[in-house]
Design a protein around this nucleic acid. Structure first.
Lengths: 245, 245
DNA sequence: TTAATAGTGTCTCTTAGACAGTATCCC
DNA sequence: GGGATACTGTCTAAGAGACACTATTAA
Protein backbone atom coordinates (compact mmCIF):
# COMPACT_ATOMS: atom_id res chain seq x y z
CA UNK A 1 0.00 0.00 0.00
CA UNK A 2 1.56 3.27 -1.02
CA UNK A 3 0.32 6.79 -0.41
CA UNK A 4 -3.06 6.42 -2.02
CA UNK A 5 -5.83 8.89 -1.61
CA UNK A 6 -7.30 9.07 1.79
CA UNK A 7 -8.70 11.25 4.45
CA UNK A 8 -7.79 12.04 7.95
CA UNK A 9 -9.07 14.20 10.62
CA UNK A 10 -7.57 16.91 12.62
CA UNK A 11 -9.31 17.12 15.95
CA UNK A 12 -9.44 20.82 15.59
CA UNK A 13 -12.20 23.24 14.97
CA UNK A 14 -11.92 26.29 12.86
CA UNK A 15 -14.91 27.83 14.52
CA UNK A 16 -15.13 29.07 18.02
CA UNK A 17 -17.98 26.84 19.03
CA UNK A 18 -17.55 24.20 21.63
CA UNK A 19 -14.82 25.67 23.71
CA UNK A 20 -15.98 23.77 26.72
CA UNK A 21 -13.16 21.40 27.48
CA UNK A 22 -9.46 21.83 27.20
CA UNK A 23 -9.27 18.32 25.76
CA UNK A 24 -7.53 17.70 22.48
CA UNK A 25 -10.72 17.60 20.50
CA UNK A 26 -11.68 21.19 20.34
CA UNK A 27 -8.55 22.94 19.30
CA UNK A 28 -8.64 25.86 16.98
CA UNK A 29 -6.17 25.36 14.18
CA UNK A 30 -5.59 29.07 13.95
CA UNK A 31 -4.31 29.10 17.51
CA UNK A 32 -1.48 26.85 16.52
CA UNK A 33 1.81 27.75 15.06
CA UNK A 34 2.39 25.43 12.15
CA UNK A 35 5.60 23.70 11.25
CA UNK A 36 6.99 23.77 7.74
CA UNK A 37 6.48 20.58 5.82
CA UNK A 38 8.90 19.42 3.19
CA UNK A 39 9.10 16.35 1.03
CA UNK A 40 12.51 14.90 0.28
CA UNK A 41 13.18 12.23 -2.27
CA UNK A 42 16.00 9.80 -1.98
CA UNK A 43 16.65 8.67 -5.54
CA UNK A 44 18.63 5.56 -6.14
CA UNK A 45 19.81 3.99 -9.34
CA UNK A 46 22.30 1.45 -10.55
CA UNK A 47 25.21 3.12 -12.25
CA UNK A 48 28.54 1.64 -13.15
CA UNK A 49 27.66 -1.54 -11.34
CA UNK A 50 27.16 0.41 -8.17
CA UNK A 51 24.18 1.58 -6.16
CA UNK A 52 24.19 5.33 -6.39
CA UNK A 53 22.02 8.12 -5.11
CA UNK A 54 21.44 11.68 -6.16
CA UNK A 55 22.62 14.50 -3.92
CA UNK A 56 22.49 18.26 -4.10
CA UNK A 57 25.16 20.58 -2.87
CA UNK A 58 23.84 23.14 -0.44
CA UNK A 59 24.63 26.71 -1.32
CA UNK A 60 23.78 28.43 1.90
CA UNK A 61 23.52 28.14 5.63
CA UNK A 62 23.13 25.77 7.31
CA UNK A 63 25.54 23.10 6.13
CA UNK A 64 26.65 25.31 3.28
CA UNK A 65 28.71 23.39 0.77
CA UNK A 66 27.64 20.00 2.03
CA UNK A 67 25.64 17.46 0.09
CA UNK A 68 22.03 16.76 0.89
CA UNK A 69 19.03 14.74 -0.23
CA UNK A 70 16.94 16.87 -2.61
CA UNK A 71 13.61 18.13 -1.39
CA UNK A 72 11.33 21.09 -1.12
CA UNK A 73 8.24 22.54 0.42
CA UNK A 74 4.91 21.01 -0.22
CA UNK A 75 2.33 23.09 -1.99
CA UNK A 76 -1.02 23.50 -0.31
CA UNK A 77 -2.88 21.83 -3.13
CA UNK A 78 -0.73 18.82 -3.91
CA UNK A 79 -0.49 15.43 -2.23
CA UNK A 80 2.68 14.23 -0.60
CA UNK A 81 3.24 11.84 -3.43
CA UNK A 82 2.67 14.53 -6.01
CA UNK A 83 5.23 16.71 -4.29
CA UNK A 84 7.69 13.83 -4.40
CA UNK A 85 7.04 13.32 -8.10
CA UNK A 86 7.52 17.00 -8.74
CA UNK A 87 10.86 16.87 -6.98
CA UNK A 88 11.83 13.83 -8.97
CA UNK A 89 10.86 15.53 -12.19
CA UNK A 90 12.75 18.68 -11.32
CA UNK A 91 15.95 16.88 -10.49
CA UNK A 92 16.06 14.12 -13.04
CA UNK A 93 13.42 14.87 -15.64
CA UNK A 94 12.11 11.38 -15.10
CA UNK A 95 8.53 10.27 -14.50
CA UNK A 96 6.76 7.04 -13.75
CA UNK A 97 9.32 5.51 -11.49
CA UNK A 98 8.99 3.42 -8.39
CA UNK A 99 8.20 5.70 -5.50
CA UNK A 100 7.56 4.75 -1.92
CA UNK A 101 7.06 6.71 1.26
CA UNK A 102 9.95 5.95 3.56
CA UNK A 103 9.48 7.72 6.85
CA UNK A 104 8.64 11.08 8.34
CA UNK A 105 11.21 12.95 10.35
CA UNK A 106 10.08 15.74 12.56
CA UNK A 107 12.24 16.31 15.58
CA UNK A 108 12.42 19.92 16.65
CA UNK A 109 15.90 21.25 16.08
CA UNK A 110 16.49 19.06 13.07
CA UNK A 111 16.80 22.17 11.06
CA UNK A 112 18.34 25.17 12.81
CA UNK A 113 16.23 27.62 10.85
CA UNK A 114 12.75 26.61 11.83
CA UNK A 115 10.60 23.66 12.77
CA UNK A 116 10.53 21.42 9.76
CA UNK A 117 8.73 18.13 9.33
CA UNK A 118 9.99 16.16 6.40
CA UNK A 119 8.28 13.29 4.70
CA UNK A 120 10.93 11.26 2.94
CA UNK A 121 10.16 9.23 -0.16
CA UNK A 122 12.51 6.98 -1.92
CA UNK A 123 12.61 6.33 -5.61
CA UNK A 124 14.23 3.67 -7.74
CA UNK A 125 15.26 4.70 -11.21
CA UNK A 126 15.90 2.48 -14.16
CA UNK A 127 19.50 3.14 -15.14
CA UNK A 128 18.71 3.48 -18.84
CA UNK A 129 15.99 6.06 -18.40
CA UNK A 130 18.43 8.13 -16.51
CA UNK A 131 21.05 8.28 -19.21
CA UNK A 132 18.59 9.82 -21.61
CA UNK A 133 17.47 12.71 -19.49
CA UNK A 134 20.93 13.49 -18.18
CA UNK A 135 21.00 15.97 -15.33
CA UNK A 136 20.02 19.57 -14.85
CA UNK A 137 22.99 21.74 -14.05
CA UNK A 138 26.29 20.21 -13.19
CA UNK A 139 28.38 21.15 -10.22
CA UNK A 140 25.69 21.14 -7.57
CA UNK A 141 23.98 17.88 -8.44
CA UNK A 142 25.72 14.56 -8.42
CA UNK A 143 25.38 10.81 -8.18
CA UNK A 144 27.28 9.11 -5.40
CA UNK A 145 27.83 5.52 -4.41
CA UNK A 146 25.79 4.74 -1.31
CA UNK A 147 28.85 2.87 -0.15
CA UNK A 148 31.09 5.91 -0.42
CA UNK A 149 29.09 8.99 0.40
CA UNK A 150 30.51 12.41 1.17
CA UNK A 151 29.59 13.91 4.53
CA UNK A 152 25.91 14.74 4.36
CA UNK A 153 24.03 17.73 5.70
CA UNK A 154 21.66 17.39 8.63
CA UNK A 155 21.28 13.72 9.53
CA UNK A 156 20.82 12.61 6.00
CA UNK A 157 23.35 9.88 6.64
CA UNK A 158 20.84 8.23 8.93
CA UNK A 159 18.05 8.55 6.41
CA UNK A 160 20.19 6.82 3.83
CA UNK A 161 20.79 3.95 6.19
CA UNK A 162 17.10 3.71 6.88
CA UNK A 163 16.39 3.56 3.17
CA UNK A 164 19.03 0.91 2.60
CA UNK A 165 17.52 -1.26 5.29
CA UNK A 166 14.08 -0.89 3.78
CA UNK A 167 15.39 -1.68 0.33
CA UNK A 168 17.26 -4.76 1.50
CA UNK A 169 14.27 -5.99 3.41
CA UNK A 170 11.93 -5.61 0.49
CA UNK A 171 14.37 -7.18 -1.89
CA UNK A 172 13.72 -10.52 -0.27
CA UNK A 173 9.99 -10.68 -0.51
CA UNK A 174 8.96 -8.26 -3.24
CA UNK A 175 9.82 -7.61 -6.86
CA UNK A 176 11.21 -4.19 -6.06
CA UNK A 177 14.52 -5.01 -7.71
CA UNK A 178 13.06 -4.91 -11.19
CA UNK A 179 12.54 -1.19 -10.89
CA UNK A 180 16.27 -0.70 -11.20
CA UNK A 181 16.52 -2.53 -14.51
CA UNK A 182 15.38 -1.61 -18.02
CA UNK A 183 12.53 -3.52 -19.56
CA UNK A 184 14.76 -6.29 -20.83
CA UNK A 185 17.66 -7.66 -18.89
CA UNK A 186 19.73 -10.77 -18.43
CA UNK A 187 19.69 -12.98 -15.39
CA UNK A 188 23.23 -11.93 -14.65
CA UNK A 189 22.16 -8.30 -14.55
CA UNK A 190 19.36 -9.14 -12.18
CA UNK A 191 21.82 -10.99 -9.99
CA UNK A 192 24.03 -7.91 -9.94
CA UNK A 193 21.14 -5.87 -8.63
CA UNK A 194 20.75 -8.25 -5.73
CA UNK A 195 24.47 -8.51 -5.10
CA UNK A 196 25.02 -4.78 -5.17
CA UNK A 197 22.13 -4.00 -2.86
CA UNK A 198 22.75 -6.84 -0.45
CA UNK A 199 26.45 -6.08 -0.73
CA UNK A 200 27.49 -9.70 -0.99
CA UNK A 201 28.07 -12.31 -3.65
CA UNK A 202 25.36 -14.82 -4.45
CA UNK A 203 25.65 -18.29 -5.89
CA UNK A 204 24.79 -18.15 -9.56
CA UNK A 205 23.02 -21.49 -9.74
CA UNK A 206 20.95 -21.02 -6.64
CA UNK A 207 20.01 -17.53 -7.66
CA UNK A 208 18.81 -18.56 -11.11
CA UNK A 209 17.01 -21.56 -9.75
CA UNK A 210 15.14 -19.44 -7.25
CA UNK A 211 14.20 -16.65 -9.62
CA UNK A 212 13.14 -18.95 -12.45
CA UNK A 213 11.08 -21.12 -10.13
CA UNK A 214 8.85 -18.15 -9.33
CA UNK A 215 7.86 -17.68 -12.97
CA UNK A 216 8.02 -13.93 -12.68
CA UNK A 217 10.39 -13.81 -15.64
CA UNK A 218 9.41 -14.14 -19.24
CA UNK A 219 11.93 -15.11 -21.89
CA UNK A 220 11.84 -12.47 -24.62
CA UNK A 221 13.53 -14.75 -27.11
CA UNK A 222 16.13 -12.08 -27.69
CA UNK A 223 19.73 -12.33 -26.61
CA UNK A 224 22.25 -9.85 -25.42
CA UNK A 225 25.73 -10.13 -26.83
CA UNK A 226 28.50 -8.15 -25.34
CA UNK A 227 32.14 -9.02 -25.32
CA UNK A 228 33.67 -12.09 -26.78
CA UNK A 229 31.60 -14.81 -25.21
CA UNK A 230 28.34 -16.65 -25.24
CA UNK A 231 25.35 -14.28 -25.43
CA UNK A 232 22.82 -14.16 -22.62
CA UNK A 233 19.07 -14.58 -22.82
CA UNK A 234 17.06 -11.44 -22.30
CA UNK A 235 14.15 -11.64 -19.91
CA UNK A 236 11.25 -9.40 -19.12
CA UNK A 237 9.47 -8.97 -15.81
CA UNK A 238 6.01 -10.47 -15.79
CA UNK A 239 3.99 -8.67 -13.10
CA UNK A 240 1.07 -11.04 -13.58
CA UNK A 241 2.64 -14.26 -12.34
CA UNK A 242 2.21 -14.70 -8.62
CA UNK A 243 5.37 -13.31 -7.13
CA UNK A 244 5.92 -15.63 -4.16
CA UNK A 245 9.50 -14.46 -4.02
CA UNK B 1 14.62 2.03 13.56
CA UNK B 2 11.93 4.18 15.04
CA UNK B 3 11.64 7.96 15.02
CA UNK B 4 15.04 8.70 16.51
CA UNK B 5 16.61 12.07 16.67
CA UNK B 6 17.74 13.44 13.44
CA UNK B 7 17.99 16.42 11.22
CA UNK B 8 16.62 17.39 7.89
CA UNK B 9 16.83 20.34 5.72
CA UNK B 10 14.27 22.55 4.24
CA UNK B 11 15.64 24.00 1.08
CA UNK B 12 14.41 27.32 2.16
CA UNK B 13 16.11 30.41 3.35
CA UNK B 14 14.76 32.67 5.99
CA UNK B 15 16.89 35.51 4.75
CA UNK B 16 16.45 37.39 1.58
CA UNK B 17 19.90 36.72 0.24
CA UNK B 18 20.41 34.63 -2.83
CA UNK B 19 17.26 35.31 -4.67
CA UNK B 20 18.94 34.65 -7.96
CA UNK B 21 17.24 31.52 -9.24
CA UNK B 22 13.68 30.40 -9.01
CA UNK B 23 14.89 26.88 -8.28
CA UNK B 24 13.58 25.02 -5.28
CA UNK B 25 16.64 25.71 -3.22
CA UNK B 26 16.17 29.32 -2.33
CA UNK B 27 12.63 29.44 -1.10
CA UNK B 28 11.63 31.65 1.72
CA UNK B 29 9.67 29.68 4.24
CA UNK B 30 7.66 32.71 5.15
CA UNK B 31 6.32 32.87 1.61
CA UNK B 32 4.65 29.56 2.04
CA UNK B 33 1.34 28.76 3.50
CA UNK B 34 1.81 25.94 5.93
CA UNK B 35 -0.40 22.90 6.37
CA UNK B 36 -1.57 21.79 9.78
CA UNK B 37 0.26 18.78 11.12
CA UNK B 38 -1.41 16.29 13.40
CA UNK B 39 -0.29 13.07 14.98
CA UNK B 40 -2.80 10.26 15.31
CA UNK B 41 -2.27 7.14 17.33
CA UNK B 42 -3.91 3.89 16.51
CA UNK B 43 -3.90 1.98 19.78
CA UNK B 44 -4.46 -1.72 19.75
CA UNK B 45 -4.80 -4.16 22.56
CA UNK B 46 -6.00 -7.65 23.23
CA UNK B 47 -9.27 -7.59 25.10
CA UNK B 48 -11.70 -10.41 25.62
CA UNK B 49 -9.72 -12.62 23.29
CA UNK B 50 -10.15 -10.12 20.52
CA UNK B 51 -7.97 -7.51 18.87
CA UNK B 52 -9.45 -4.18 19.75
CA UNK B 53 -8.62 -0.57 19.08
CA UNK B 54 -9.47 2.66 20.76
CA UNK B 55 -11.75 5.12 19.02
CA UNK B 56 -13.11 8.52 19.87
CA UNK B 57 -16.51 9.79 18.97
CA UNK B 58 -16.42 13.06 17.08
CA UNK B 59 -18.52 15.80 18.56
CA UNK B 60 -18.56 18.26 15.72
CA UNK B 61 -18.35 18.77 12.01
CA UNK B 62 -17.14 17.06 9.95
CA UNK B 63 -18.23 13.51 10.58
CA UNK B 64 -20.00 14.54 13.72
CA UNK B 65 -21.05 11.55 15.77
CA UNK B 66 -18.76 9.14 13.95
CA UNK B 67 -15.87 7.32 15.49
CA UNK B 68 -12.29 8.27 14.70
CA UNK B 69 -8.71 7.44 15.57
CA UNK B 70 -7.54 9.75 18.35
CA UNK B 71 -5.05 12.43 17.49
CA UNK B 72 -4.14 16.03 17.85
CA UNK B 73 -1.93 18.84 16.72
CA UNK B 74 1.75 18.68 17.18
CA UNK B 75 3.37 21.27 19.39
CA UNK B 76 6.21 23.26 17.95
CA UNK B 77 8.69 22.01 20.47
CA UNK B 78 7.93 18.30 20.62
CA UNK B 79 9.00 15.47 18.35
CA UNK B 80 6.48 13.41 16.42
CA UNK B 81 7.04 10.53 18.75
CA UNK B 82 6.60 12.72 21.80
CA UNK B 83 3.33 13.96 20.41
CA UNK B 84 2.22 10.37 19.90
CA UNK B 85 3.17 9.51 23.46
CA UNK B 86 1.29 12.50 24.74
CA UNK B 87 -1.78 11.38 22.87
CA UNK B 88 -1.39 7.90 24.26
CA UNK B 89 -1.06 9.24 27.75
CA UNK B 90 -4.08 11.48 27.40
CA UNK B 91 -6.32 8.73 26.13
CA UNK B 92 -5.22 5.76 28.14
CA UNK B 93 -2.98 7.01 30.91
CA UNK B 94 -0.42 4.49 29.81
CA UNK B 95 3.27 5.03 29.16
CA UNK B 96 6.16 2.95 27.88
CA UNK B 97 4.30 0.96 25.31
CA UNK B 98 5.30 -0.23 21.89
CA UNK B 99 5.00 2.66 19.50
CA UNK B 100 5.84 2.70 15.83
CA UNK B 101 5.40 5.24 13.08
CA UNK B 102 2.97 3.83 10.57
CA UNK B 103 2.55 6.19 7.67
CA UNK B 104 1.94 9.82 6.84
CA UNK B 105 -1.23 10.85 5.10
CA UNK B 106 -1.37 14.21 3.47
CA UNK B 107 -3.70 14.40 0.52
CA UNK B 108 -5.35 17.77 0.10
CA UNK B 109 -9.05 17.49 0.78
CA UNK B 110 -8.61 14.72 3.30
CA UNK B 111 -10.05 17.04 5.86
CA UNK B 112 -12.73 19.42 4.61
CA UNK B 113 -11.69 22.10 7.06
CA UNK B 114 -8.14 22.76 6.04
CA UNK B 115 -5.03 21.14 4.65
CA UNK B 116 -3.94 18.61 7.23
CA UNK B 117 -0.97 16.31 7.14
CA UNK B 118 -1.25 13.50 9.62
CA UNK B 119 1.53 11.30 10.84
CA UNK B 120 -0.02 8.11 12.12
CA UNK B 121 1.60 6.02 14.80
CA UNK B 122 0.43 2.74 16.05
CA UNK B 123 0.74 1.45 19.56
CA UNK B 124 0.39 -1.97 21.12
CA UNK B 125 -0.82 -2.08 24.69
CA UNK B 126 -0.38 -4.86 27.17
CA UNK B 127 -3.89 -5.86 28.12
CA UNK B 128 -3.16 -5.91 31.84
CA UNK B 129 -1.71 -2.42 31.96
CA UNK B 130 -4.85 -1.18 30.41
CA UNK B 131 -7.19 -2.60 33.00
CA UNK B 132 -5.44 -0.65 35.70
CA UNK B 133 -5.67 2.76 34.14
CA UNK B 134 -9.20 2.31 32.88
CA UNK B 135 -10.36 5.03 30.55
CA UNK B 136 -10.92 8.76 30.76
CA UNK B 137 -14.54 9.71 30.25
CA UNK B 138 -16.97 7.16 28.99
CA UNK B 139 -19.40 7.73 26.18
CA UNK B 140 -17.06 9.25 23.67
CA UNK B 141 -14.16 6.84 24.00
CA UNK B 142 -14.42 3.16 23.35
CA UNK B 143 -12.66 -0.04 22.46
CA UNK B 144 -13.82 -1.82 19.34
CA UNK B 145 -12.94 -5.10 17.72
CA UNK B 146 -10.89 -4.43 14.61
CA UNK B 147 -13.02 -7.12 13.01
CA UNK B 148 -16.25 -5.32 13.74
CA UNK B 149 -15.68 -1.61 13.55
CA UNK B 150 -18.36 1.02 13.37
CA UNK B 151 -18.25 3.33 10.34
CA UNK B 152 -15.19 5.52 10.79
CA UNK B 153 -14.69 9.19 10.08
CA UNK B 154 -12.51 10.35 7.21
CA UNK B 155 -10.73 7.38 5.68
CA UNK B 156 -9.75 5.90 8.97
CA UNK B 157 -11.00 2.56 7.78
CA UNK B 158 -8.13 2.48 5.32
CA UNK B 159 -5.62 3.43 7.96
CA UNK B 160 -6.79 0.57 10.12
CA UNK B 161 -6.29 -1.84 7.26
CA UNK B 162 -2.85 -0.46 6.65
CA UNK B 163 -1.99 -0.97 10.31
CA UNK B 164 -3.33 -4.51 10.31
CA UNK B 165 -1.20 -5.36 7.33
CA UNK B 166 1.86 -3.95 8.99
CA UNK B 167 1.11 -5.81 12.20
CA UNK B 168 0.58 -9.10 10.42
CA UNK B 169 3.72 -8.69 8.43
CA UNK B 170 5.85 -7.93 11.45
CA UNK B 171 4.31 -10.74 13.44
CA UNK B 172 6.16 -13.22 11.26
CA UNK B 173 9.66 -11.91 11.57
CA UNK B 174 9.76 -9.82 14.74
CA UNK B 175 8.87 -10.21 18.39
CA UNK B 176 6.21 -7.52 18.17
CA UNK B 177 3.56 -9.89 19.53
CA UNK B 178 5.01 -9.84 23.02
CA UNK B 179 3.99 -6.22 23.40
CA UNK B 180 0.41 -7.33 23.68
CA UNK B 181 1.05 -9.66 26.59
CA UNK B 182 1.85 -9.00 30.22
CA UNK B 183 5.31 -9.87 31.49
CA UNK B 184 4.40 -13.48 32.18
CA UNK B 185 2.19 -15.53 29.93
CA UNK B 186 1.49 -19.07 28.86
CA UNK B 187 2.26 -20.50 25.47
CA UNK B 188 -1.42 -20.82 24.81
CA UNK B 189 -1.88 -17.13 25.42
CA UNK B 190 0.92 -16.34 23.01
CA UNK B 191 -0.69 -18.58 20.46
CA UNK B 192 -3.93 -16.66 20.90
CA UNK B 193 -2.13 -13.45 20.06
CA UNK B 194 -0.99 -14.93 16.80
CA UNK B 195 -4.30 -16.51 16.03
CA UNK B 196 -6.27 -13.39 16.73
CA UNK B 197 -4.02 -11.13 14.70
CA UNK B 198 -3.59 -13.51 11.79
CA UNK B 199 -7.25 -14.33 12.08
CA UNK B 200 -6.79 -18.05 11.66
CA UNK B 201 -6.18 -21.10 13.78
CA UNK B 202 -2.67 -22.44 14.21
CA UNK B 203 -1.53 -25.94 14.99
CA UNK B 204 -0.64 -26.12 18.66
CA UNK B 205 2.28 -28.49 18.31
CA UNK B 206 3.88 -26.69 15.39
CA UNK B 207 3.43 -23.34 17.04
CA UNK B 208 5.08 -24.40 20.28
CA UNK B 209 7.86 -26.17 18.44
CA UNK B 210 8.64 -23.08 16.43
CA UNK B 211 8.50 -20.61 19.30
CA UNK B 212 10.50 -22.74 21.71
CA UNK B 213 13.16 -23.48 19.09
CA UNK B 214 14.00 -19.79 18.93
CA UNK B 215 14.89 -19.62 22.62
CA UNK B 216 13.26 -16.26 23.04
CA UNK B 217 11.16 -17.62 25.87
CA UNK B 218 12.35 -18.17 29.37
CA UNK B 219 10.54 -20.51 31.72
CA UNK B 220 9.68 -18.59 34.88
CA UNK B 221 9.14 -21.78 36.86
CA UNK B 222 5.72 -20.48 37.84
CA UNK B 223 2.47 -21.94 36.61
CA UNK B 224 -0.87 -20.47 35.83
CA UNK B 225 -3.91 -22.31 37.05
CA UNK B 226 -7.28 -21.34 35.82
CA UNK B 227 -10.32 -23.53 35.51
CA UNK B 228 -10.47 -27.15 36.40
CA UNK B 229 -7.57 -28.58 34.47
CA UNK B 230 -3.84 -28.96 34.25
CA UNK B 231 -2.00 -25.70 34.95
CA UNK B 232 0.17 -24.12 32.27
CA UNK B 233 3.80 -23.05 32.51
CA UNK B 234 4.39 -19.31 32.63
CA UNK B 235 7.05 -17.92 30.33
CA UNK B 236 8.78 -14.62 30.06
CA UNK B 237 10.10 -12.92 26.92
CA UNK B 238 13.87 -12.90 26.76
CA UNK B 239 14.89 -10.03 24.52
CA UNK B 240 18.53 -11.08 24.65
CA UNK B 241 18.29 -14.38 22.81
CA UNK B 242 18.73 -13.93 19.09
CA UNK B 243 15.21 -13.64 17.76
CA UNK B 244 15.49 -15.41 14.39
CA UNK B 245 11.74 -15.74 14.34
C1' DT C 1 42.11 -22.80 -29.89
C1' DT C 2 41.54 -19.68 -26.49
C1' DA C 3 39.34 -16.34 -23.64
C1' DA C 4 35.33 -15.12 -21.49
C1' DT C 5 30.92 -15.54 -19.65
C1' DA C 6 26.24 -18.24 -20.04
C1' DG C 7 24.04 -21.92 -18.50
C1' DT C 8 22.89 -26.26 -15.87
C1' DG C 9 21.83 -30.57 -11.65
C1' DT C 10 22.53 -33.08 -7.33
C1' DC C 11 22.89 -33.78 -2.67
C1' DT C 12 22.23 -32.44 2.08
C1' DC C 13 20.16 -30.15 5.73
C1' DT C 14 16.77 -27.42 7.64
C1' DT C 15 12.14 -25.99 8.03
C1' DA C 16 6.95 -26.09 7.59
C1' DG C 17 3.02 -28.52 8.04
C1' DA C 18 -0.06 -32.55 8.84
C1' DC C 19 -1.40 -35.34 12.40
C1' DA C 20 -3.24 -38.03 17.78
C1' DG C 21 -2.37 -39.58 22.13
C1' DT C 22 -0.74 -38.94 27.11
C1' DA C 23 -0.34 -35.88 31.42
C1' DT C 24 -2.13 -33.23 35.12
C1' DC C 25 -5.11 -30.60 37.48
C1' DC C 26 -10.01 -29.88 39.98
C1' DC C 27 -14.20 -31.60 40.99
C1' DG D 1 -13.46 -41.08 37.08
C1' DG D 2 -14.87 -37.36 34.32
C1' DG D 3 -14.05 -33.02 32.44
C1' DA D 4 -10.95 -29.87 30.69
C1' DT D 5 -6.83 -28.16 28.90
C1' DA D 6 -1.48 -28.77 28.88
C1' DC D 7 1.90 -30.96 26.74
C1' DT D 8 4.62 -33.89 23.42
C1' DG D 9 7.03 -36.45 18.62
C1' DT D 10 7.22 -38.28 13.87
C1' DC D 11 6.89 -38.22 9.12
C1' DT D 12 6.89 -35.94 4.71
C1' DA D 13 7.60 -32.39 1.42
C1' DA D 14 9.59 -28.22 0.06
C1' DG D 15 13.19 -24.88 0.11
C1' DA D 16 18.07 -23.15 0.98
C1' DG D 17 22.66 -23.61 0.30
C1' DA D 18 27.08 -25.94 -1.07
C1' DC D 19 29.34 -27.27 -5.00
C1' DA D 20 31.88 -27.98 -10.70
C1' DC D 21 31.43 -28.76 -15.24
C1' DT D 22 29.66 -27.98 -20.18
C1' DA D 23 27.95 -24.56 -23.91
C1' DT D 24 28.49 -20.82 -26.97
C1' DT D 25 30.26 -16.92 -28.89
C1' DA D 26 34.19 -13.66 -31.11
C1' DA D 27 38.71 -13.19 -32.00
Amino acid sequence: MEESSNGKEAMNEQKEEEQSEEGPHNYDAAKYERPSVTVDVLMMSLRQRDLQMLLIKRRSWPYEGMWAIPGGFINMDESLETAAKRELQEETGVEDVYLEQLYTFGNPGRDPRTRVITVVYFALLDSELLQVSAASDATDVGWFSVYDLPPLAFDHQMIVEYALNRLRGKLEYTTIAFNLLPEQFTLRELQWVYEIILHKKLDKRNFRKKILSTNILEDTGAKKMEGTHRPARLYRFNPEAESKL
